[in-house]
């Protein structure tokens, strides 16, 4: 009986595993192999270069720049986007009226396709017709107007702001679900003990949200390392590589310079970073959950 049960599980798992293996594991292995070669695309000869691509990567200033930009995006995502999402969740769950309405309004950006978001923000930042410069001119601050996406000093932050706008609500929804899942009785008990709203948040909501915070951190970390579409549509990684991320640089090397081996090396670096960070976060969170379990 036990054995046949196990067979049945495996039978059910097999299709998903097959899809996973064919479309995820196999391509990762394949780009790993490709990262040790020089290849210009289908129909072109492939030559092995050993660690040549990786050695070149270490000396490539644009690779380091894109790593730094990805790091900036990552930090903003974790330390600004998640708190903003949490803040929105708290505001929406504590709203006295029309909770659903506000939830829907704040969630809208995440529902929009990235292409639409990117084009929308291109309009917002448009130097001549955009709402930001338009507002600045209207209040007489003409000298504050900028070519937001066209200057190396402002482009990265402009793109990161758009990314925050798009994704903070996604985390808001997750936090709302988690907050609503917390037993009301705990709050009632705390209130009776005289806990202020802030104390309730600090000592009840936040600790009980930890597992969700970890999950969202992993999503946010992986998301920012893979980030591509919004930036590519808004700036193509420019001007002068100022918004180049690992993923856009990989695309540039692969599909502009046709250096698929070199691009694969960038991809492997991205994979390694994501993998290591995810493992660290998971291991740490498992440990802390065990610790909590022991206490509980």
């Amino acid at each position: 009986m036990q054995r046949s049960e196990r067979l049945k599980w495996m039978g059910f798992l097999l299709p998903a595993l097959a899809v996973y293996a064919v479309f995820l594991i196999y391509p990762i292995v394949q780009s790993g192999v490709l990262s040790f070669s020089s290849w210009a695309g289908p129909g072109r000869p492939k030559t092995s270069v050993g660690f040549g691509n990786y050695a070149e990567l270490l000396q490539d200033p644009i690779f380091w720049l894109s790593l730094r930009n990805t790091g900036a995006l990552l930090l903003v995502s974790v330390f600004l986007q998640l708190p903003v999402g949490l803040g929105l969740a708290l505001i929406v769950t504590s709203a006295r009226r029309a909770k659903r309405f506000w939830r829907a309004v704040y969630f809208l950006p995440t529902l929009m396709s990235t292409v639409a978001v990117a084009i929308l923000w291109r309009f917002v930042y448009s130097p001549e017709y955009g709402i930001i410069n338009g507002f600045l001119r209207w209040v007489g601050l003409d000298s504050w107007t900028q070519g937001w996406l066209g200057q190396t000093g402002t482009a990265l932050w402009a793109v990161i702001a758009a990314n925050l706008w798009q994704w903070a609500p996604f985390y808001m929804i997750i936090y709302i679900a988690a907050i609503l899942g917390i037993d009301r009785e705990i709050y009632e008990a705390a209130e009776m003990d005289g806990a202020s709203p802030f104390q309730q948040f600090r000592f009840i909501t936040l600790p009980l949200l930890v597992p969700v915070l970890i999950t969202t951190s992993i999503l946010s970390l992986a998301g920012s390392i893979k980030a591509f579409d919004l930036v590519y549509i808004m700036t193509l990684g420019g001007p002068s590589n100022s918004t180049e991320l690992l993923a856009t640089y990989m695309f540039r090397q692969g599909f502009r310079n046709y250096r698929l081996g070199y691009a694969s090396a960038v991809a492997m670096v991205m994979f390694a970073i994501t993998f290591v960070i995810t493992v660290i976060v998971l291991v740490r969170s498992n440990r802390s959950q065990h610790a909590n379990g022991g206490r509980g």
Partner: peptide, 23 residues
């Protein structure tokens, strides 16, 4: 040149617009 031109996209008509509109 116009402000922020390194961030504008020719394929989306962002420079032609300025020329057509007489700006």
């Amino acid at each position: 040149f116009n402000q922020g031109f390194n961030g504008l996209d020719y394929d989306k008509g962002e420079s032609r617009q300025l020329f057509w509109s007489g700006k």
